[in-house]
Amino acid sequence: MKPPSQIRRFLRHPSGAVGLALLLFFVAMALAAPYLFPQGPYKMVARPMLWPGQNPDLLLGTDSLGRDLLVSVVYGARVSLLVGLSAALASAIVGAAVGLVSGYFGGWIGDMLMRITDAFQTLPSFLAAILIVGLIGPSIGTIVTSIALVSWPMVARLVRAEVLRIKTLDFVQACRIMGMPDWRIMLAEILPNSLGPIIVATSLLVANAIIIESGLSFLGLGDPNMMSWGGVIGNGRSALRMAWYITMIPAGAVVLTVLALNLIGDALNDVLNPRLRKG
């Protein structure tokens, strides 16, 4: 594995470059939010439902409570990316652990873990997330947990398949004969070699988590102390006839962010998983 060349290939990949540029834009937005708008997104600054451009100081206009929509969108990037990354990371870790153990040991442990994975995958996932967040109460913590809880099975299956393949390779057999303990073989030999698919999956998980978070917020299940794109869309729903820009501007932000992550996922897939390089 030669990371530098892969990074170069990724950057030369058209969708990789476009996706990365888009994503960086949103990341910059998220990081800069408190410096650009120290007053926070909840400040009511003008008359409600001012259209974009009606007041030159308010580039994107105001929402139905008179809050600056631009500030909401900028702060919304923080929530989306924060929830997306943490939920994806959590599900990648859980999924990888389950996949590793079940693939490496096989037998009844592996079987049982896979049955449980199957069962989790059969749950209607968004419905389950609504149930968890709705019942325990909306906060960043419960939102991330609920998303992770419904997304890890996909990683588990993927990692298990990888492990099953790698486990039969000569170098793993060699480690075994040398008497290396199981946990070291798993962590030091197998895991690094199955990172490719995990990274690709994680990039798609981030996208998926952002979609779930915005959906939850849209239904009124967002964290009330964090301005989220889904929440803005949900609040703007009743004003759709009078001020459609309130819903459509943050909707555009969601779509662009998810698009960026999908493009990155595609590029990563092409670069890291040469076996699957079609499509």
Binding site: Y42, M44, L65, G137, P224, N225
Partner: peptide, 28 residues
């Protein structure tokens, strides 16, 4: 309804003005 949470958001901003570090929480 939408109003109780929004009223809480308004009060949070007002209380911050007078030096109280307020947070809002929505409960079903």
């Amino acid at each position: 309804g939408e109003e109780p949470p929004r009223a809480a958001e308004y009060m949070r901003e007002q209380f911050r003005e007078i030096g109280i570090n307020a947070e809002a929480r929505v409960n079903d």
